[in-house]
Design a protein around this nucleic acid. Structure first.
Lengths: 221, 221
DNA sequence: GCAAATGGGAAACTCTGTTTCTTTTCAAAA
DNA sequence: TTTTGAAAAGAAACAGAGTTTCCCATTTGC
């Protein structure tokens, strides 16, 4: 119930070492482990994130990971949620243009940039690169939260009557559709099926512009 | 050059056991190994395809796999090409409708069915489920070959002037675009991001119909 | 101050891909 | 036909993964 109240530890500075953190509560320890795993993830890729390597970076036994998270998948779940937070931050940082269609294009560009800048996170979350990792209910909720800008722009376009009659009536259904199309190009590129990055990016932009001009009845290009 | 001519072995019946095949040339042996791996792949999924399990099913040492293929990835390449053959067969089996748009819809449906019926193959080929497997040049060529129906229908639609002006001019570019969008929905579904199969199928059909009605200027629905 | 319980560290277990070493086998030369 | 050498294949070993077990230290409650 009361977590923050009786904070016995007098100093609340950033915890750096495992030996410091073990004196604190498990929540701080979890955060420290996830941070270590995230560093390895971004520096060496998803397949480099191993329980041994994380515990080694922490300077502790592998047992800790299994005590804090149930197994490696539990750690992956947390990294997934971290990735959702990053993605949400990126989406929120994109300027919300007045025209919903322009806004959608901007968000689509942001999604591509996220996949390029945080490739390891993307592969972990949506690429199926982390063994047989499947997102649980909380992770799925995190995805929806991260994409709420996308849901918002589609919803407002619907309310303004800007969408084509051929588009689905359900807001989320449209987002799924857009997400699927954009993800497909990104994932095929990551799998090496679409040649080099510029070539794949061209296809991505074609997909994005085609989608937006289909969904929006009034196109201005 | 002349492979079939001087077939010394008098009986050409199907080789079943490893002991029979070891008497033959390496080509037969390779085929036998790939068949064993394919069986495991389809019966137990991509992650169950291990060198030990394949060699065990063959009744031989793991060394054989490394002699015939360089490593596990070499075996994966062969399974990839097998998957391309299956996909090509499915595409060829779909009736070629006179209307290119209808034909495209039919091929899209076939692609979904392929992903559902041969899920393990799909995950191996396009799902990134086989470690850090990346298709080599031959595999990429196999993909193009398997999708030549798709290239054909788009090309003929272009020649008949049926495509919208907003569609890219390059035939292959359009195919990449369609492929990406359809793959995205399939892959998100396999990753557990789109709920149950019927729900994902609905999104898939929406994507397919939206794509076709955008690409084709004249829509009849 | 002491006993019990909890938590963490080292090592072991199993399974993976891969390599090495030894044995077998087969074919050609003597 | 016998011998010899090379090629092929099997068994076992190696390294690294996820996970579990066992043991000890620390802490906690009386």
């Amino acid at each position: 119930m009361s977590e923050q109240e009786h904070s016995v530890n007098k100093d609340k500075r950033e915890l750096k070492t495992y030996q410091e953190a073990r004196l604190q509560n498990t929540e701080n320890l979890r955060k420290l482990v996830v941070d270590a795993a995230a560093t390895i993830l971004q520096e060496e890729g998803p397949e480099a994130v191993t329980v041994r390597k994380v515990s080694q970076k922490m300077g502790c036994s592998t047992k800790i990971i299994y005590s804090l998270f149930v197994n490696k998948e539990g750690l992956a779940q947390q990294l997934y949620l971290d990735g959702c937070k990053i993605m949400a931050r990126e989406f929120e940082a994109t300027p919300a243009l007045a025209d919903p269609r322009e806004h959608l294009l901007a968000l689509g560009e942001t999604y591509w940039q996220f996949a390029q800048r945080y490739t390891s996170y993307y592969k972990l979350m949506f690429g199926g690169a982390f063994g047989d990792f499947k997102p649980d209910e909380e992770s799925l909720q995190g995805t929806v939260t991260a994409m709420r800008q996308l849901i918002y722009v589609v919803g407002s376009a619907q309310q303004q009557g800007l969408l084509s009659a051929s588009a689905p009536a359900d807001t989320v259904e449209i987002v799924r559709l857009v997400w699927g199309a954009l993800h497909g190009v990104i994932h095929l590129q990551m799998g090496g099926h679409l040649g080099d990055v510029p070539s794949a990016y061209a296809t991505y932009q074609q997909t994005l512009s085609l989608l937006s001009s289909t969904l929006f009845a009034k196109q201005d290009s």
